[in-house]
Amino acid sequence: MYAFDYQKAGSVSDALAALKAEDAQPISGGQTLIPTLKARLAAPSALIDLSGIAEMKGIEVAGGMVKIGGAVTHQSVADHAGVKAAIPALAQLAAHIGDPAVRHKGTIGGSVANNDPSACYPSACLGLGATIHSSAGDMAADEFFQGMFATALDAGQIVTGVSFPIPEKAAYMKFVQPASRFALVGVFVSKGAGGVRVAVTGASESGVFRWTAAEDALAGNFSPDSVPPAPAADGMIGDIHGSPEYRAHLVAVMTKRAVKAC
């Protein structure tokens, strides 16, 4: 790692003030950022730690919404009785991110802000039609995620929380990449007041996306048999773990399985 200053932020406003420094960067659970720093792939001047900000640590289930603070760990989401009751698919998703030690540190805010194309949470945000709360205001997930590692946030802005509308039913199906255990393809399906949403992570070179053809088909008849054939392989990720065709095929298979599990 290159040298940097470290500062624990006590509040969102503290954090935003500290992030004004040139090349200062936020750190939350650090489970992705620290390995990046170790490889000297980033050289922040300062790391501003968001993980202790009290106002970002709550989970509320009220008014048809589950609101999760940005500094809430994956484990806390997985264990939360209210989340388990309201959106079991979300608790399940959180319970299978990384491994236990990673879940004890990693946070929803960090995951959403990083928008790794193979991360699980972005698919839940998109698949449930969540609202992303940030220091730049509230944004619909559809606007927030803008391609691999890209979001609507600018440098110095942070994710403070995510609100998920509680669906009628939802499920997440992840087919893991055998080495990293990230999603080779993950599909989050929900049916609720906003209709049917199908969000796919891991597959596309453009990051998390909604598979609208499946949404349309499922809106008519919410059944595994309604899931259309695999989407086009163009634009899907191809690497040693799977070709674009394989990923496209898995999108359809995982969608069917998610619908079945709803």
Binding site: A179, S180, D239, I240, H241
Partner: peptide, 23 residues
């Protein structure tokens, strides 16, 4: 079932960490 050290045509090791080399 899992392990393979894979090089690309330029001799770059594509499986240079546990992120890609499946233990």
């Amino acid at each position: 079932l899992l392990e393979s050290a894979v090089y690309d045509a330029n001799g770059q090791l594509l499986t240079g960490s546990y992120m890609d080399y499946a233990m």
